[in-house]
Nucleic acid binder design. Structure first.
Length: 114
DNA sequence: GGTCTGACCGGCG
DNA sequence: ACGCCGGCCAGAC
């Protein structure tokens, strides 16, 4: 977003990096990313960052869900079912737009990356 | 250039 | 237990 190299480090960049680091078959929440970035309250912008990120194929936005494990952002994808389909393809069971065994599949960057 | 909203989360009523 | 409100940053009108 920022052309200035000095200010290149913004939320979005960090968010992208973290999201890209999410292992296959794992999911994380906006709050977890926000917390890892240091601003747990700013989970909204994490989703906002995803909005800009969903254009980048490198960013697996489908691995990012809300705290309840619900695929809230599915509507922002090319197709509403694309998100669920991708998750299932990676071995994540999704039922009614909700990640099954979310606690098991949950991947916390703050703990994993630390 | 000010204002509102946005794929959320946590706290309070 | 359910519903509303406040909070943070960045982009769009």
């Amino acid at each position: 977003m920022k052309k200035n190299a000095q200010k290149a480090y913004s939320f979005f960049d960090d968010v992208y990096e973290v999201v890209m680091l999410i292992p296959i078959g794992r999911v994380t929440s906006y709050g977890a990313i926000a917390s890892y970035l240091g601003t747990k309250m700013c989970a909204r912008m994490v989703g906002w960052a995803m909005n800009a990120a969903h254009t980048n194929k490198k960013i697996p936005a489908h691995r990012v869900v809300n705290r309840s494990g619900l695929l809230t952002g599915r509507h922002h994808f090319e197709t509403p079912s694309a998100m669920q389909k991708r998750l299932e393809k990676e071995g994540i069971k999704v039922k009614n737009h909700q990640v099954q065994e979310f606690e098991k599949k949950f991947w916390d960057p703050a703990k994993e990356l630390e």
